[in-house]
Amino acid sequence: MPNSPFFLDFEKPLIEMEERIAALKKFTEEKNMDFSDEIARLEERACKLGEEIFGNLTRWQRVQLARHPKRPFALDYIKLIFHDFIELHGDRHFRDDPAIIGGIAGLDGRPVTVIGQQKGRDTKENIARNFGMPHPEGYRKALRLMKQADKFGRPIICIVDTPAAYPGIGAEERGQAIAIAENLKEMTKLSVPVIVVVTGEGGSGGALGIALGNVVLMLENSIYSVCPPESCAAIIWKDGTLAEKAAEELKLTAQDLLKFKVTDEIIKEPLGGAHRNYTETAVRIKEALLRHLQQLSEMTGEELVRERYNKFRNMGEFFEGEGGG
């Protein structure tokens, strides 16, 4: 069962040990016997085991953590990081897309606009939220809220977590590509700070459509890629099962992206991944948000626009002139 809904293969030894510890503790309480030495020993072993497993993750393991069904999603973070969130709905043209949520919230007393891609926690919610895969109206809603934020001088926080922009007939009919392109074009003009946090899956254009930020942060086990490793494998080696290999080739982890300067900072996750401690993860994200917001707040609108433009203008690597190989 490589994709158990509850834990990943490589998490299993740690979870089993934790279960043993919990059982022993319960037993201690019930029978009023002292196993504290044994418990301490096991806890130390669990801690080491955790460091062994999570200190040296392969890219594919990080992909699996980024997609972990128990991972905190945008609404979880909004609840833990912001206060007084008011959700705003709809693109004013076609419908409200539940795969992208957005609204006004307070960040330590400061009004901000929060936008995020939202996956479902169970099958029913996943169907409603289309597994976090937005339609064009989702991107248009996001843009509407960003322009609103710009108008009222509110900083914008975008939480990125989507497998992809939805590849369906309706999405094509309503201009999925154009909606994303328009967002990219318009986001360069926003004169308020835009901070992006990739918390889970940064799925290609679907992620980028809300990710043109002054600052792009990534959680330690999040990914951001030009295409899913499965599709990459299918296209290049005509074999979708070579996803693990494709994940290595695509260099899609936060650590890779820091080297390419596509992300500005990695936010460390609690041992074992964000899903093992929502509160601690949220605390760390909040700290980074406040710190970057403080810095960006010192810039004028013009500076914010210019810096954001230059950041993306300079992305890419190529040879120029005769030295080319």
Binding site: A181, L184, S204, A211, L212, V226, I236, L250, R313, G316
Partner: peptide, 25 residues
Amino acid sequence: ARMQEGILSLMQMAKTSAAVARLSE
């Protein structure tokens, strides 16, 4: 986007669209 350049290809979408915004302005 060209897969072999990974995330850098994806970023060309942002880069070119941003430039179109300037052209438009």
